[in-house]
């Protein structure tokens, strides 16, 4: 069993209560692994610490316990190896869309000439459909969808080893969200980018992800299950709903969010090293799993924890 590209080990986050009260444990003993080139989504209710996990992966936040290891090195502090797209775009409002990308590219490739930086930035802006003058506008003159496109272009343009997306489409309307999802999946397919994405949208997760991690409710949240999405690519929003596994996966996710995320919540007892339980559907449902995350094989079509 080789170590995965990204390995999260016993990650724990506690917030110290003011004046000697009991500290709040948001999540505890989160274990997960991500392979190079994988697209992983994480789903869970608000307050389970998804964003905190992502910030720790980004190096913007510190865990109380546990470690994140990427490429055999422990993550400490932010780095250009990990690009981030936030829900609120995080564009610098006094710079044009183009400049918002070029400063990042310049920071990544310090030896490049101005022309190289400009051409590289424009290439990615064109990939997300921003060209022909729109790239010279300030973020305030762009729609929410356009701003998020700039943010995505910036993240891909620095070609990080790991791309972190924190609910990138959360603030967008359904139509815009759909078209940017298509663009994201298209750009991702043309790269070997590893992606870790937070979402609240079950359909979005199935459309985009190779694997969906399910988090129980906090406090003491943890990653309980890892659902394999083995629907072949390229996927299209119009066709994916006709895939035989689609509704099995969807129902499983919805049921988890509606019911089991609450039932499984609370303190863990016993195995703190446990990797999330692996769940598969369709033809591979019964297959023996030699998991890179060390999960135990689960033979049932819908592997459901016995709690219910």
């Amino acid at each position: 069993m080789s170590t995965p590209f990204l390995s999260v080990q016993n990650l724990t986050k506690r917030f110290q209560a003011p004046k000697g009260g009991e500290s709040l444990t948001v999540f505890e003993n989160v274990n997960l692994g991500i392979e190079k080139g994988e697209f992983v989504c994480i789903i869970g209710h608000s307050g389970c610490g998804k964003s905190t996990i992502l910030n720790i992966l980004a190096g913007l936040d510190e865990p109380s316990d546990g470690a994140v290891i990427m490429n055999g090195k422990e993550v400490s502090g932010p780095s250009l190896d990990r690009g981030i797209v936030f829900q609120n775009y995080s564009l610098l409002p006094w710079l044009s869309a183009l400049k918002n990308v070029t400063f990042a590219v310049q920071a990544r490739y310090k030896s490049w000439s101005k022309k190289q930086v400009h051409d590289h930035s424009m290439k990615y802006l064109e990939l997300v459909g921003l060209a022909g003058g729109a790239e010279l506008r300030k973020p305030s003159q762009l729609s929410g969808g356009m701003r998020q496109r700039v943010s995505i272009a910036r993240a891909f343009a620095i070609q990080p080893e790991l791309l972190l997306l924190d609910e990138p489409f959360g603030a967008l309307d359904a139509l815009t969200r759909g078209s940017i999802q298509d663009e994201l999946i298209r750009i991702w397919s043309g790269s070997d980018q590893t992606v870790f994405m937070i979402t609240h949208d079950v359909d979005e997760a199935i459309l985009l992800a190779d694997r969906i991690l399910l988090m129980t409710n906090g406090p003491y949240a943890r990653v309980a299950e890892s659902v394999q999405v083995e629907i072949e690519r390229p996927r299209e929003r119009a066709n994916i709903i006709h895939h035989p596994d689609y509704y099995d996966i969807r129902n499983h996710l919805v049921e988890f969010l509606a019911k089991r995320s609450r039932e499984l919540a609370g303190k863990q007892d016993g195995d703190t090293q446990a990797a999330p339980k692996i769940v598969r559907f369709g033809a591979n449902a019964g297959a023996e799993i030699s998991s890179e995350t060390g999960g135990k094989p689960d033979a049932r079509k819908r592997a459901v924890n016995n709690a219910d």
Binding site: A58, G59, L92, W94, F103
Partner: peptide, 25 residues
């Protein structure tokens, strides 16, 4: 904080952070 984080995640040094992010902000 978001803008400071943009500077941090792009590994801008102290001088560049001041010049590109803090001063215009």
């Amino acid at each position: 904080k978001d803008w400071v984080n943009v500077a941090r995640t792009h590994e801008l040094g102290a001088f560049k952070t001041a010049w590109i992010v803090i001063l215009p902000a």
